[in-house]
Write a protein that binds this DNA or RNA. Structure first.
Lengths: 256, 256
DNA sequence: AGATATTTGTTCGTATGTATT
DNA sequence: TAATACATACGAACAAATATC
């Protein structure tokens, strides 16, 4: 395709409009009919443009009399899905994920130690408390793994630095995939070691000890990396689906 | 909207198909007509699905007898644009960008010191060479700034760790925005300081001195952060346009 | 070079679904 | 309940791009 499609041109034009007029989330776009008249194009082209903006997460669309297209803030879920799609064919190894994690998460811990408020401290304390349970069965092990990653997610969610937040959230999502693809090793000592690390990190954060939070987190990640270095390095990736309802998908005919 | 749109359902179904059948970039999808027959839906719905996948970067589409939709690897440019859109309404400050940069770029420097090959070393050397020029005019200053960021981009492009690469590339793109929004300060000493830092970092990489590369980069970033802390913290963000050709956009009618 | 076939791109008319009044 | 305003969906036709012969 030498020439850009009409839909893409219109989408870009609307983007310019959003920037130039400093539109904010919630602001309303003209209706499809108005857009066809303004741009002198067919309905389908306008719909392609709106679909493009919708997939990018910049607008959301509703039906009905008060409906239409409205400027939206791109959600965290959407950008995480896009990142996941980006790495789908990339063959990222667990070692590579840990290389990034080792550099970013200590910074996150320091950041949180600086800004954590009472509600966040409470959530972290609850999480540490929840990780006290015994690890007997395979289900126990998997549950503890989820609680463990949840601790890291709480830290990321608590960040006031959006860039730091999103990077850490994506790392955690990737770690979840790695953990799932791993057959449970009978390494109960790792689980208890993790619990102790989290306790220490929590204490450092609660005491606003920035340096301790950072270095403890670094040691924690390095130990995790070492512990799992032997296991399957390749992570099994998949594409995220918007509609998690499997019934609706299976209602469609199968493809050959 | 309570029920998902048909286009989204079909897009998800195709995604499942891609994962289940282990399709690879270049593989062909059924034609629009075939898809309408398979899914028993109208052409518009199929096109919405394909448009969604196209915007996500998972397929590319061409016309003609050998044309159609083909599986594609999501490009770096596309994910960077999505990240930019994500932060559009987020009000990220320069300080926050540097907080992430300070943690991740030293890791990148270490990574590169470990794996850099001759061509990359050559490019880095050329870049350092190019930064020797005098800084007299305002244009000199801006050119030197671009060469400086180019050095960091060369490091990111050289990374074999895709996750590290993309994070650093996005940081660099954001830094470019910050630099552009900054009126040139008459701080010629910063430019020369940067040049010296880059020389040292290059030397460490060339000598495969991982620790030196990492710590030099850390000091370099910290100094940069301090030097610019006084300037405007807010970065002026904008949305990326697919079609950079301004003629085509201005050919469209203006919006009210 | 020109004709032609194939596939996407675009338009239009019409009908349906949805949410408000 | 009915009228409305909007998005959603279908189908047929035509236009444009790009291969092959």
């Amino acid at each position: 395709m030498r020439f850009p499609k009409r839909g893409d041109l219109i989408a870009d034009s609307i983007k310019q409009w959003i920037v130039r007029d400093k539109m904010r989330p919630g602001d309303r776009l003209p209706s499809e009919k108005q857009l066809t008249e303004k741009y002198q194009v067919g309905k389908a082209s306008v719909r392609e443009a709106l679909k493009s903006l919708e997939v990018q997460g910049l607008i959301r669309t509703t039906t009905g009399p008060t409906g239409g297209s409205f400027i939206a803030e791109v959600t965290e879920a959407r950008i995480l899905n896009h990142l996941q799609s980006y790495f789908f064919f990339k063959d990222v190894t667990a070692t590579q994920v840990y290389e990034v994690r080792r550099s970013v998460e200590p910074t996150l811990a320091r950041h949180i130690a600086e800004i954590a408020d009472a509600p966040l401290l409470r959530k972290l304390a609850d999480n540490v408390q929840a990780s006290q349970g015994a690890v007997q069965t395979r289900e126990d092990w998997q549950r503890q793994q989820q609680i463990h990653i949840e601790f890291h997610d709480l830290l990321a969610d608590g960040a006031t630095n959006p860039m730091l937040c999103i990077h850490c959230k994506f790392i955690n999502r990737t770690i979840r995939h790695i953990v799932r693809s791993r057959e449970s090793p009978q390494q109960r000592d790792i689980i208890t070691a993790n619990r102790i690390w989290h306790e220490k990190i929590y204490e450092a954060i609660a005491k606003r000890n920035l340096n301790a939070a950072e270095s403890l987190m670094r040691e924690h990640i390095v130990e995790l990396d070492d512990a799992y270095k032997v296991s399957k390095p390749q992570l099994t990736n998949h594409l995220h689906l918007e509609t998690q309802d499997p019934d609706r998908l299976s209602a469609l005919p199968e493809l050959p």
